[in-house]
Deep mutational scan, measured.
Amino acid sequence: KELVLVLYDYQEKSPRELTVKKGDILTLLNSTNKDWWKIEVNGRQGFVPAAYLKKL
C-alpha cells in the first residue's frame, strides 16, 4: 500500500471527494490523474486534489 501525507485541509465539494485534515496519513488508491488522487479515509473512497497530498 502506498501512503500519502495531507499537506493542507481540504473540504469536500462533491460526493466524489473526501474531506481531509493537514497531517493525516492516508492510503493512496490511484494517482494516475495528475490533478486528482483517489484515497481512502475511514473506509470511504474518494478524490482529493493532488496538490494537497505528498507521497510517503
Rank of each mutant, 00 (worst) to 15 (best):
T27I: 15
K34S: 12
L56P: 02
V6R: 00
E17A: 07
F47S: 04
S31D: 14
E12L: 13
L53P: 00
V41K: 15
W37H: 02
D35V: 09
K34W: 07
E2A: 11
L56N: 03
D24Y: 06
L5G: 02
G23D: 06
L26D: 02
S31T: 11
G23L: 02
N42W: 06
W36Q: 03
K13A: 14
G46L: 06
S14N: 13
Q45T: 14
P15T: 10
E17M: 06
V4I: 06
W36L: 05
L28W: 01
E12P: 13
L7N: 02
K38H: 15
I25P: 00
E12V: 12
L18M: 14
L28P: 00
S31F: 06
P15A: 11
G23E: 02
E12F: 09
L7H: 02
S14Y: 07
W36D: 02
V20A: 03
A50I: 03
L18R: 05
K38C: 11
K13M: 13
G23C: 06
P49E: 03
Y8F: 15
Y8K: 15
L7Y: 03
V20W: 01
D9L: 02
L3E: 09
I39D: 00
Y10F: 08
L18N: 03
L7G: 01
N42S: 10
S14Q: 09
R16G: 15
K21A: 11
L29T: 06
N33P: 04
I25V: 12
N33D: 15
P15G: 13
Q45S: 15
L18Y: 02
E2P: 12
N30M: 08
E40K: 05
K54H: 11
L28V: 07
I39A: 12
K54C: 14
D24E: 12
Q11N: 14
L28Q: 01
Q45C: 10
W37K: 01
V41A: 14
I25G: 00
V48D: 01
A50Q: 06
E17H: 07
L7F: 03
L18G: 03
F47I: 08
D35I: 12
T32I: 08
L5A: 05
D9I: 01
E17I: 04
G43R: 05
V6K: 00
K22F: 05
L3I: 08
I39G: 04
Y52N: 12
D24V: 04
E17C: 06
Q11E: 14
T32Y: 11
S14C: 09
L53Y: 00
K34L: 11
L56D: 03
L5S: 04
T19F: 05
I25M: 05
W36P: 01
S31M: 09
Q45F: 09
V6A: 07
V48P: 00
T27R: 11
N30D: 15
P49I: 02
D9T: 06
V41H: 15
S14H: 13
K22Q: 13
A50K: 07
E17D: 08
V6G: 01
L18A: 12
T19G: 06
V4W: 04
K21Q: 11
N33F: 07
K54R: 11
T19N: 08
V20Y: 04
L26F: 11
E40T: 07
K38F: 15
G43E: 09
K34H: 12
Q11C: 10
D9Y: 03
D24N: 07
I39N: 01
S31E: 15
T19S: 13
I39C: 13
K34N: 15
E12A: 12
E17K: 07
N33G: 11
D35F: 14
L26R: 06
Q45I: 14
Q11S: 14
L7D: 01
A50R: 10
E12D: 07
V20M: 05
K55W: 05
K54L: 14
Y52C: 09
K55D: 04
K55Q: 08
L56A: 04
Q45K: 09
Y8S: 11
V6Q: 01
L5N: 02
Y8G: 07
R44T: 10
A51Q: 13
I25A: 02
R16Y: 14
L56S: 03
V48W: 01
N42M: 08
K1Y: 15
L28G: 01
E40Q: 08
L56V: 12
D9A: 05
L53Q: 00
P49Y: 02
E17Q: 12
G23H: 05
F47V: 08
T27P: 14
E17Y: 05
V41R: 13
R16F: 15
L3S: 08
K34I: 11
G46W: 04
V6L: 02
L56R: 03
Q11A: 10
K13R: 14
V20C: 06
A51D: 12
R16H: 15
Y52H: 15
L3G: 03
Q11F: 14
L56E: 04
S14D: 12
D9R: 02
G46F: 08
K55A: 08
V6E: 00
G46H: 04
N30Y: 06
N42I: 08
F47A: 03
K55C: 08
T19A: 06
V41E: 12
S31V: 07
A51F: 12
V4G: 02
K22E: 09
E40P: 00
N30T: 08
K38M: 15
E2T: 14
P15E: 14
L3H: 13
L5W: 05
Y52I: 15
I25H: 04
I39T: 10
L18E: 03
P49L: 03
G43F: 06
W37T: 02
E12K: 13
P15C: 10
D24H: 06
N42R: 09
S14V: 04
Q45V: 13
I39Q: 00
I39S: 03
K55L: 15
V41N: 13
V48M: 05
F47M: 10
L28C: 08
L26Q: 06
G43C: 08
L5M: 13
Q11R: 10
K21S: 11
P15N: 15
T19C: 06
V20N: 00
Y8R: 13
K55V: 12
K38Y: 15
V20G: 00
L3M: 12
I25R: 05
A50W: 01
Y10L: 01
V41S: 15
K55N: 08
L26P: 04
V20H: 02
L56H: 05
A51C: 13
E12G: 15
G23T: 01
T32G: 09
R44P: 01
K21M: 11
D35T: 09
K21Y: 14
S31L: 04
L26G: 14
S31G: 11
I39Y: 00
T32N: 12
K13Y: 05
V4F: 03
A50S: 14
L18P: 01
Y10E: 00
R44Y: 08
I39H: 00
L29W: 05
L5T: 05
G43S: 08
E2G: 10
E12N: 09
A51K: 13
K1N: 13
L26H: 15
E2H: 13
L53I: 04
L3Y: 12
V20P: 00
F47G: 02
D24M: 13
R16N: 15
V4N: 00
D9F: 03
R44A: 10
D24Q: 15
Y10N: 01
L7R: 05
L29M: 09
Y8A: 15
K38N: 08
V48H: 01
L53D: 00
K13N: 11
K22R: 13
V4E: 00
E2S: 11
K13E: 08
K55S: 09
E17V: 04
S14W: 07
A50M: 04
L5D: 01
K34Q: 10
F47Q: 03
V4L: 04
R16T: 12
T27D: 07
P49H: 03
D35N: 12
T19V: 06
E17S: 08
K1T: 14
P49F: 02
L7V: 08
G46T: 03
Q45L: 07
L18K: 04
D35Y: 12
R44G: 05
L56G: 02
E17T: 08
I25N: 02
L18H: 04
S14K: 07
I39E: 00
